[in-house]
């Protein structure tokens, strides 16, 4: 009985005692009734608000203060960013669906949604790499002007958050996948996916030095085939097989993931839509890139 007294140990022991009950209890045996680990995550997110708040504030303070171009309206590509925003939004949907199915005990479906989330996050990152690359080609580097400095810092840290989230989700997907055959399928699927992604980037960015268009095309095609072959193993996996991750673990990584999404909601509005409408400074054409 005494081991109940550490709230955290208690949470763990609840999971042990009822391996079949995947849903966290509505009311935890803690002083506030809140789950200890979820409370930690929410506190962290509240703190991360201050982190991104500081970065966004620095961006806004230096808005329209650049002495030389390129200026935001000259480089920001709203159509492309709208697509990547949509991709990140959909990754939030797939995240919440993953949690729903893992909670409902449908591990196979849940696992696929976890992978879909990681994949959508990776696609978002590809867009970001493409965008950074394009900006550098248009003459905007972090050193060029205040816009470059603040823009790359803010979106770069957001991208770093997404990267960490993707790594976290992939780790969860690997742990969540029981069975040798499924795990091999997972590795093939993920490996193929990233090969295809790099290939696609090489084609569209057209400037990743050792990869010309032909190599990029080959990588894209081969990677896609491997990814589909690997995914086949996952999709046809035993439906009844229980996943060995707790829904709480997934819920916490999900909170992180959605937070990264809401940060992007703010960034998309404040940096892209609003800054891209900023008037060019007088005589910008003289300096413009």
């Amino acid at each position: 009985m005494r081991k109940k007294d550490l709230a955290q140990a208690h949470t763990a022991s609840t999971a042990q005692a009822h391996p079949a009950a995947h849903e966290a209890p509505a009311h935890e045996d803690t002083s506030t009734g809140l789950n200890t680990r979820k409370l930690l995550m929410w506190t962290f997110l509240a703190s991360d608000v201050m982190f991104f708040g500081s970065l966004i504030a620095a961006y806004l303070i230096y808005r329209n203060q650049s002495l030389v171009g390129p200026y935001p309206p000259e480089v920001l590509d709203i159509p492309i960013t709208s697509i990547s925003t949509f991709v990140l939004l959909m990754s939030s949907l797939s995240m919440v669906l993953a949690l729903h199915y893992i909670k409902a005990g449908e591990s196979r479906t849940g696992r696929l949604w976890i992978l879909a989330t990681a994949a959508l996050g990776s696609v978002f990152l590809c867009f970001q790499v493409y965008e950074f690359n394009a900006f550098v080609h248009e003459g905007l580097t972090p050193r060029t002007n205040l816009f470059g400095t603040t823009f790359f810092t803010l979106t770069g840290f957001h991208g770093a958050h997404v990267t960490f989230g993707v790594a976290w989700l992939l780790a969860m997907a690997i742990v969540a996948t029981p069975g040798r055959r499924e795990r091999m399928g997972l590795l093939l699927g993920v490996g193929g996916f990233y090969t295809a992604a790099v290939g696609a980037l090489a084609i569209f960015a057209g400037s990743i030095p050792p990869l010309d268009n032909a190599v990029g095309l080959v990588m894209f095609l081969a990677g896609s085939v491997i990814a589909i072959a690997g995914s086949y193993n996952l999709i046809t996996a035993d439906k009844a097989q229980k996943t060995p991750i707790s829904s709480l673990d997934l819920e916490i990584s999900g909170l992180y993931w959605h937070f990264v999404d809401i940060v992007w909601i703010v960034i998309f509005t404040v940096i892209y839509l609003i800054s891209a409408s900023d008037p060019l400074p007088v005589g910008a054409a003289l300096h413009g890139g």
Binding site: A58, S66, L67, P142, R143, L146, G148, T149
Partner: peptide
Amino acid sequence: MNFYNTAKGG
């Protein structure tokens, strides 16, 4: 970078 670089408007 230029956060506190007055030469670039920081």
